[in-house]
Nucleic acid binder design. Structure first.
Lengths: 327, 327
DNA sequence: CTGAAAGCGCTTACAG
DNA sequence: CTGAAAGCGCTTACAG
């Protein structure tokens, strides 16, 4: 069986209190005793039971991470950075892929509460949020408005939308289509669409926006893209709200014998490392993924420690245009 | 404060024992009592503390997942499927991105033991494995040999290597280079290399293998690729052990004015959904990611339940060639 | 410098 | 059908 603190104490000939004190560096323990205890730990191959400690401490150092799916490179990279930073802060990550499904989000929210997580980072719609409030849990949202009191970390979506749209116009596009997720008020990502529509309207240029539920598999994306291209044969520019969609647009354009960027210019969104590897030619808006992760963790830790600064309800990080050859 | 079982009991006018019995559907509780308890739970917005339950039950329903990084699409997708299946089985996933670094692997291994996980799925080298054994923990490896007793799930790497190599030869390649991770005996992925070298030797064709430490950032990969292309100007085919490397090869070939597939043919490896979206033209070997996840979970559950079937030490799943236009 | 006791929030024999 | 007691593996006042 697994050794427990009591076994260590017995073997070392001291009380459990003393062993506990040693592990936590609390109170005085003589050098002689320390040595005895340490060798007892070695001998028994002892590891403290963090479950028992958590129960007493009312602090698990566990955080929940809810996002649509790590299969999407943006979230896969975000997850990597978040988990990495957590590990550096002694936090452990319980991963939840909700696929943006409300039923899953609710199940996960309950699961996290039962597991006494110290905080939650949410990158999904999440209606279960009401429950968090009651539990008065630390929560940080990424690119989502969840409630008045939950801080939001996002990149500058309006600026991203503006940069993408302007790039297409500068390159001579006069008829641009935009692909985005469903119009929902809760996410700042809608600002990309808003920027697009604002600018096109200002310039008096024809445009249209198509919505697709995310995550969507490739075939479904292609169906929307085909319809859009069919409905707008004059199109000469596309602003896609993520790089996968942009890639599918380019693929479908190829099927139709359109050449990129001559016949059609395409700008994507996210600009992950994976995109840089697999599609270095794609012009896209780069989100500062690591900075988003960093900011989210920092805010969450502040909330957990109770030093939450009420003024910083929303943090917006800069994006940049990556100039590929597709636009 | 958070309500606890005792609060529910008091409000319902019963003993904690009865409330516990209800939650666990154990023993008899009268309908009348059930109703009282249920409404008390509602009123207090009660959620059981799984930490406390775990302490008693010696079962956390927590599993650890150690892999290089979810930022790599293969692992991002694998993680998605594993977590998803775990959720369906009532298991929770503690995520660990080790970057194949031994120090991190060891830290994570200890962390997981302290947290009393019921089992671990390992997709990284992991020397910390010795400790698992002592803790006599359920472990399943993905594409890694960890020890005699730890079952391994992998796809058919030799066949994958064979398919890739044969494809290149069939398309007329006579001088093929292979890019792979460092030659280490612990991973079945070395069989890809072996298949490549076996076939090339059989056919008496010139070939060479270059190793790169993974995960490697794009610039470092490109450096190896440039060196390889410089050293072998006669090369007409490349078999890369993952799709990111294949993409970088194609990129560098473009820089050199080589046209794909006329001057150089390229086959990748992994064939993730992300690759299908971003690089549908890439000829690659598709690993059955969801099946790998499924098999790993099934085996781990069996180990946890103690019904481990000793005969199934290694499970090899079929791969397939996806025929793109790069080879 | 060290230990006995109580308690973290649950569950499970054991009684009744 | 229901409850009092002990215990899961720790930690922390409180004594000494």
């Amino acid at each position: 069986m697994k050794a427990k603190l009591e076994d260590v104490a017995k073997l070392a000939g001291v009380s459990p209190t003393t062993v506990s004190r040693m592990m936590n560096n609390r109170g005085y323990v003589s050098e002689a005793t320390k040595t005895k205890v340490r060798s007892a730990m070695e001998e028994l191959n002892y590891f403290p039971n963090d479950i028992a400690r958590s129960l007493f401490n009312k602090r698990t150092n566990l955080i929940g991470l809810i996002l649509p799916t790590t299969a999407n490179p943006f979230f896969g990279e975000l997850t990597f950075h978040i988990e990495n930073l957590c590990a550096a802060h002694g936090l452990k990550v319980l991963l939840c892929n909700s696929l943006n499904r409300i039923d899953k989000e609710e199940q996960y929210a309950e699961m996290l509460m039962r597991n006494q997580v110290d905080g939650i980072i949410v990158g999904t719609h999440n209606r279960g949020i009401l429950n968090y409030k009651r539990a008065n849990l630390a929560v940080v949202a990424i690119d989502r408005y969840l409630s008045e009191t939950i801080p939001v970390v996002s990149s500058d979506n309006y600026e991203g939308g503006r940069l993408a749209t302007q790039r297409l116009i500068d390159r001579g596009c006069r008829y641009i289509l935009h692909f985005n997720g469903p119009a929902e008020l809760e996410t700042p990502a809608q600002l990309r669409r808003q920027a697009f529509e604002d600018i096109m309207q200002q310039q008096g240029l024809p445009h249209d926006t198509y919505e697709m539920e995310l995550p969507l598999d490739r075939e479904d994306q292609l169906a929307v893209i085909r319809r859009a291209l069919d409905e707008h044969p004059e199109v000469d520019g596309i602003f896609a709200s993520n790089d996968m969609i942009a890639a599918s647009v380019i693929y479908e354009a190829g099927n139709r014998g359109m050449s990129i960027p001559d016949d059609l210019k395409v700008v994507g969104y996210d600009g992950t490392a994976v995109t840089s590897s697999l599609m270095p030619q794609l012009t896209t808006i780069r989100q500062p993924i690591e900075a988003i992760a960093n900011t989210a963790i920092t805010m969450l830790l502040r909330e957990i420690e109770g030093e939450f600064d009420d003024t910083a309800r929303q943090i917006v990080l800069p994006v940049e245009l990556y100039e590929g050859t597709t636009a």
